[in-house]
Design a protein around this nucleic acid. Structure first.
Lengths: 147, 147
DNA sequence: GATAAAGTTTACGTAAACGTAAAGTAGTTT
DNA sequence: AAACTACTTTACGTTTACGTAAACTTTATC
C-alpha cells in the first residue's frame, strides 16, 4: 500500500539520486520492466522496490548480473515448483554465508579503525605537548602563535 | 612476528587465491611495493598484509583506487604532521558512517531473506500435503511413488 | 503556434580490473 | 646441454556500468 502507484523516470531518479541513464540501463539489462504509455516509461511500485534493491545490492558489492539472477530466481520461485523452491533455499543459504563473511570483514575493519584512530589521537597529543613546551620559550614566534 | 619474512608472487597468489596477474596489477597501481632480487619480486610481510586488506576491501565493495587512497593517507599520517592527522581522523569518521550504512543494508537483507525463506518453506509444505493426498488415491503411480 | 521541458532512441566513449597471449630471462633438474 | 619451471615485460582484448552527445517526439505553458 504505497502512497503512489506509478512513477516517472525522473521521479525515481531524484528519489534515489541516480541518473535516468542508469535507470534506462537497468531496464536494458532487464532488471526493471516498466510499462509504457506511448514511448514513455511508467514505473510501478514493484519497479521502485526493485530499484531500491539494485542500489542496496551495489552498496553491498553485488554486480547487476548477480542482482538480476536473484530477481529471476525469485520470479521462478513464485511459480512454485518443488525444484525451484529447493534451489532457492540453497541459494539463500549461500547468500547468508556471504553476509556472514561481510559482517566479519566489517568487524575487522572497525577494529583496525579503532586502533588507527587511537594512534592518531596519541600522535596529536604528542604534538600538542611539544607546542606548549616550545611556544613560551620562543620570543620571535609569539605573535604567530596567537593567530 | 610472522612465520616468514618474504614471499614469492606465486606463494601469495596461492595463499589468497588470486592470479599473479592481479598481484602485478596491484603493484602497477602502486598498492604493493615489493622489492626485487634482479627482476624477481620479493614481497615483505607488510605487502602480505596490504594484499589481505586489498581483498577485504574488494569484498566490502571498495575500489582499488579507494583502497590506495587509504594506504597513501595512512603512510602520510605516519609521518605525523598535524594537518594529516586531522584529515585522517575525519576520513576515519566518514568510513565509519559508510560501515554503518553497510551494516544496515546487511540487516535489511537478512530480514528479507528470512521472509523469503519462510515463504519457500510454506510453499514446500503445501506441495507435500498435496502429494500425500494424491498418492494413495492413485493406483497407477504407486510404483513410481516408491522410488 | 512557438517554445521550453521532459521524455525517447541510437551510438560512440570511458574507467576499472583484470584476462590472455607473446616472447624473453634465470635458475635447476635430468 | 636440453628441457622444465617459475618468473618477467609488453601490449592488446574484455566486461561492467555507466557518461555523453546528437537528433527526435510528446506534452505542458505562455
Amino acid at each position: 500500500m504505497d502512497i503512489k502507484q506509478t512513477y516517472s523516470i525522473s521521479e525515481l531518479a531524484k528519489e534515489f539520486d541516480v541518473t535516468t541513464r542508469s535507470i534506462r540501463f537497468y531496464e536494458d539489462q532487464e532488471l526493471l520492466k516498466p510499462s509504457r504509455r506511448g514511448q514513455t516509461r511508467i514505473f510501478s511500485s514493484k519497479d521502485r522496490v526493485r530499484l531500491k534493491l539494485i542500489l542496496r545490492g551495489k552498496r553491498m558489492g553485488f554486480s547487476l548480473a548477480e542482482t538480476k539472477e536473484l530477481f529471476d530466481l525469485w520470479d521462478e520461485t513464485l511459480s512454485g515448483n518443488e525444484k525451484q523452491l529447493l534451489k532457492m533455499l540453497t541459494i539463500l543459504s549461500n547468500k547468508r554465508a556471504q553476509l556472514e563473511q561481510q559482517k566479519n570483514d566489517i568487524a575487522q575493519a572497525e577494529m583496525e579503525m579503532d586502533t588507527a584512530e587511537a594512534r592518531c589521537r596519541e600522535a596529536l597529543a604528542e604534538l600538542q605537548k611539544k607546542k606548549k613546551q616550545q611556544a613560551p620559550a620562543n620570543d620571535e614566534n609569539r605573535q604567530a602563535a596567537e593567530n
